Simulated assay, not measured.
Amino acid sequence: MTTEHTPTPATAPLSTLITADLLRGALDLERTAHGVLPHRLPASARAQNVDGQLAMAESQPSGVRLAFRTRATVVELDTLPTKRVYVGAPPRPDGVYDLLVDGRLARQASATGGNTLTIDMTAGSAEHRPGPSSTLRFAGLPERLKDVEIWLPYNETAELVALRTDALVEPIPDRGRKVWLHHGSSISHGSDAASPTATWPALAASLGGVDLINLGLGGSALLDPFTARALRDTPADLISVKTGINLVNADLMRLRAFTPAVHGFLDTIREGHPTTPLLVVSPILCPIHEDTPGPSAPDFSSVSEGRLRFVATGDPAERAGGKLTLGVIRDELARIVEQRAADDPNLYYLDGRDLYGEADFAELPLPDELHPDAATHRRMGERFADRAFAAGGPFGDGA
């Protein structure tokens, strides 16, 4: 049974029930023994999933934020995090909560305590240990009516236990902004970004003036049909799908299966969004897998130096048998989009190397050979906004 420590005496005496109308970026809200748990996949999708990695990823609230209007100068949030520990790997940093006032970053905090999920990648096992909840206190906020957002950490599960303020809160009225629905891998999920508002999709959404729903799912952009149905059934004005790296990581399928799977994924999205601008984005540069198939595997030889690296374990000669590499995937995605665009004028393609390519790798190499660092997230967000949201882009004013 999880024990929760008692919060310090609050100067925020008004308690507000956390409901769906105070949350953005989540597709479902589960009531738990402690409070509520935001999910980024609906219950119907979760019921069909048998993969622990995906279950963990979708429960990590990348892009999910509490959003309310208030005159409060003090906001307190009780949260029960679940933090990951990888056996043999360096400790992971605590997740960051970003508090925004009228769209500008005003405070940051991290939750202590919480549950621990210890993962042994070599053995393929995981152990869950319960822990106490934590109170985040944001004080000294401006004494005026304002819009407050608390962006939840992208890299740890966060059960929301209680919300307290020293003034009433209400949902933020609809601002008429377009909703951008994005799906991708751990890079879209957040990987090693500085904070939840600094992932490349969050940065791009801010620059593009849109509301983000981020279905970046670490290790799990695998063309699953239930993910396609979640995209199909989620109201959105703009949609993007970034796919490829996880298919190579997992060595999940061959070219023969990849092509119809991509068609089926796009067909399903189009069932719910027949004319919505839909952008297909291929993988960013990742040298270990450009011409070498997967699977990827952790290389623990650098752990003593405080870092973990990944290596590609496939053989380039296996491409002849249909094994996937990033080069193969980019060529096929470009061909598929060109073929479909003849009958779908709202379908677009973006080469991921336009977001991060060879020159970028020379300047900002991938620290673990797979995931970008915080500076690269910023660069990718700015470039995506420039290519997608600018006038003439697939998500530009005419979209």
Results as ranks from 00 to 15, higher is better:
107 R>V: 00
343 D>V: 01
18 I>E: 07
378 R>Q: 15
247 L>Y: 01
353 R>G: 02
244 G>D: 05
387 R>Y: 04
296 S>Q: 02
129 R>D: 12
44 S>V: 14
355 L>G: 11
109 A>S: 13
211 D>S: 12
272 G>C: 12
233 D>R: 06
334 A>L: 10
273 H>E: 09
119 I>Q: 03
41 L>N: 11
361 F>C: 09
267 D>N: 13
232 R>H: 09
108 Q>R: 15
264 G>D: 15
31 R>S: 14
241 V>N: 08
362 A>P: 01
202 A>F: 04
50 V>E: 13
99 L>F: 00
30 E>G: 03
365 P>V: 06
31 R>I: 12
148 V>T: 04
28 D>W: 11
266 L>W: 03
2 T>Q: 15
13 P>N: 05
145 L>C: 10
154 Y>V: 10
56 M>L: 15
269 I>V: 15
113 G>K: 08
56 M>H: 12
223 L>V: 06
58 E>T: 12
357 G>V: 03
139 A>P: 01
207 L>S: 12
230 A>D: 06
176 G>Y: 06
161 V>H: 08
245 I>A: 13
84 R>L: 15
88 G>S: 07
365 P>T: 04
121 M>H: 04
332 E>V: 14
175 R>Y: 01
224 D>G: 11
27 L>Q: 13
132 P>I: 05
217 L>R: 00
306 G>Q: 05
146 K>N: 04
22 L>M: 07
270 R>M: 02
228 A>I: 04
84 R>M: 12
345 P>K: 01
181 L>D: 06
69 R>M: 09
97 Y>E: 08
252 L>N: 02
155 N>G: 10
243 T>E: 11
273 H>L: 11
92 R>A: 14
87 V>M: 02
126 A>K: 06
245 I>V: 15
185 S>L: 06
165 T>I: 02
157 T>P: 02
186 S>P: 12
399 A>T: 03
365 P>G: 07
67 A>W: 03
290 E>D: 14
119 I>K: 05
336 I>C: 10
115 N>K: 09
238 L>W: 09
162 A>M: 07
198 A>H: 14
45 A>T: 15
337 V>P: 10
235 P>Q: 10
236 A>F: 05
14 L>M: 11
298 P>R: 01
278 L>Q: 05
147 D>A: 13
138 F>Y: 00
74 V>I: 10
309 R>S: 08
176 G>D: 09
158 A>M: 11
65 R>L: 13
27 L>A: 10
186 S>C: 09
321 G>I: 02
56 M>I: 11
228 A>G: 14
168 L>C: 02
96 V>W: 02
364 L>R: 14
191 S>Y: 09
216 G>T: 02
337 V>S: 06
31 R>P: 13
259 T>P: 02
145 L>N: 13
397 D>V: 11
330 R>H: 06
381 G>F: 08
82 T>I: 07
338 E>L: 10
252 L>S: 13
95 G>F: 06
118 T>W: 06
199 T>W: 12
103 G>E: 12
385 A>Q: 07
297 A>V: 03
280 V>L: 15
180 W>A: 13
366 L>A: 07
262 V>E: 09
186 S>F: 04
267 D>V: 03
308 L>H: 03
194 A>Q: 12
157 T>N: 08
209 G>T: 01
